[in-house]
Design a protein around this nucleic acid. Structure first.
Lengths: 335, 335
DNA sequence: AAAGACACCGCAAACGTTTGCGATAGTTTT
DNA sequence: AAAACTATCGCAAACGTTTGCGGTGTCTTT
């Protein structure tokens, strides 16, 4: 017995018919007699025939595959996004090819390359923190491969987008802190060249402004990972006595900050309040549970996938859309 | 300008040579003159030529793609595994196609199907909780597609495996609890048809045995997610007063148990000790930090990928191997 | 009985690539 | 000067599939 999977040609040979007849019989083409269809289909079934996706892709000039590039799959947000993408894609007959940039620009370029080599029909991308040049994406678009950016979007490229209302989310949570009576709110900020980092900072700034509190740059730290937080622990602890609250750009950093403060005998929220962004599962696992802003990764992935598939099928030349998910405040124990 | 990516034929046409010449020139075949090689390569460069992976796959009868099936990508352990797989695979010229079974047997079968349709060269699998039948895997192996099982292995199929020493890990952590003086240790167990669930239970049983403590079935609950824990909260709380410690089959469940206990005025570890398994990042984020067993997902993924690629290239007919990672106890504040 | 209609099926090209083999020159050897 | 060799290149098949077109044979219509 041949070890490889059966091809349409194997079936043709076994049944003494031509490959075209087999091909047509398998899809009940009216030109083929019922008798032949039955025999072909039965035989195909018996040898577990399955069409070769590569051959189909070559022939049809579309791979039915969507390429996905995210910074790091280990972040719950991004893995949720991927789950959403997968569910929508598989439901529409598309396969998904996932790559991680590991927040590395060069890796991102290589990822794009690899996906293009596989002739993916479209791309779903969340750009890395270190990406400042976008030519690899414009190359893709020049080849008529549509891209939908998710969360970490790229404003320099006109395309579809799926984002959270980061500005409003940050404004909401900082307003919440101000309403609790906080005057001096530290912001652990993300990279300002990314829209998510910038918008959350702007939301922070706006909330302060609405409460007539001047922005104190000293209390805005570029610090968006537990690692960076640890590296700047002394700076943060020296600021802490004068601080009412901490608003971190993501939940990991917020939790790390909370632990740092608690380990130094601050009580949360009594002495200092802490809030994050993203509503990671960890937010409900820590004590006190973390106040944060909901970010619906699964839905965003699903929507991005839907937009891409739509562009791949129906309306190729529709104007680019930006789907913005509203931000919901999740008030918990930490504030 | 043509929108699609340039093919070897486009280059041939543009330069007035044959496709075979282009193909050879691109790889500096000695039959082709330096002059021609240079011209072809320069032109290919200028149009950003990249070989079509599907065409290559068809021709070479190997896709250079590895299929991966994991239960749920949102679990840190599995996303670490995937990172390890990716790094090793990409480093060896392989691409990775990732599927989630969502702990659903039927979905797993579909995943296998989809990956076979794409003619992946090999499979990396962690089986779902609901999988009791393994014919979809033996079909794959009959087609000469090697499988390496990771963590959630399948003993009914002879294949390569990468696992953690679950038995020893559980024995270690339970022994640790017993050494702390615990007499009545509750076990929140995983599915017993999965080796991970069974081995961890056996390790628990063995540790008790070594301390001459009889196993009390009443204190062994099938409960391996925060959701199930919540559903059985009353049962757990009624057992709690007589309980010294809780050993959960994974960290999420352990953390959920810890929260449940804390919310009901138990103090951890003073009144009751809690331990998990897996060393998820959340273990260090909660207070008290969770004692657990390290499980090196990234390394396991990397190793599984390495074993698969090895079998794909060097030694196709080598005996099947099982790589067992030792279990290390991580003692933290919760015990 | 000739002609059209119909049912059923095969040929071959195409998708992009590789590769064994043959072809054409020019150059060297005898 | 014939033979042999070398350098350089093209033809065509193959991988698995789809599909337009053409080709049978049978049946119905006039």
């Amino acid at each position: 017995m041949k070890s490889g999977q059966a091809s349409i040609r194997d079936i043709a040979k076994a049944l003494g018919v031509s490959v075209s007849t087999v091909s047509r019989a398998l899809k009940n083409h009216p030109d083929i007699s019922e008798e032949t269809c039955r025999k072909v289909q039965e035989y195909a079934q018996s040898v577990h025939y399955r069409p070769n996706a590569m051959a189909l892709g070559l022939k049809n000039q579309r791979s039915m595959t969507i390429g996905v590039i995210v910074p790091e799959i280990v972040h719950h947000f991004f893995s949720s996004v991927i789950s959403g993408i997968e569910d929508m894609a598989y439901g529409n007959g598309y396969r998904v090819m996932i790559c991680q940039s590991n927040e590395d620009y060069r890796r991102e370029v290589i990822n794009v390359q690899a996906l293009m080599d596989h002739r993916v029909d479209g791309l779903l991308v969340s750009i890395s923190k270190t990406t400042l040049d976008y030519n690899h994406f414009s190359d893709v678009i020049q080849h008529d491969i549509p891209i939908v950016f998710m969360d970490r979007v790229c404003n320099e490229i006109s395309s579809d987008r799926v984002i959270t209302n980061d500005f409003e989310g940050a404004r909401l949570v900082v307003t919440h802190l101000l309403e609790r009576g906080c005057k001096k709110i530290m912001h652990l900020a993300g990279p300002q060249h990314l829209s998510v980092g910038r918008d959350r900072f702007e939301g922070y700034r706006q909330a302060l402004k609405e409460f007539n509190i001047p922005l104190d740059e000293e209390y805005v730290l570029r610090c968006d990972t537990p690692g960076k937080l640890h590296a700047r622990r002394n700076q943060i602890l020296s600021l802490a006595p004068k601080t009412d609250a901490v608003f971190a750009v993501n939940d990991f950093t917020a939790v790390a900050a909370m632990r740092l403060l608690q380990d130094n005998d601050y009580r949360v929220p009594e002495n200092i309040r802490v809030a994050g962004f993203g509503d990671d599962p960890v937010a409900t696992m820590v004590r006190p549970a973390l106040t944060t802003v909901e970010q619906r990764g699964y839905d965003m992935g699903k929507e991005a996938s839907r937009m891409l598939i739509n562009r791949l099928t129906d309306d190729k030349d529709k104007n680019f859309q930006t789907k913005t998910y509203p931000a919901f405040l999740k008030v918990r124990e930490s504030t």
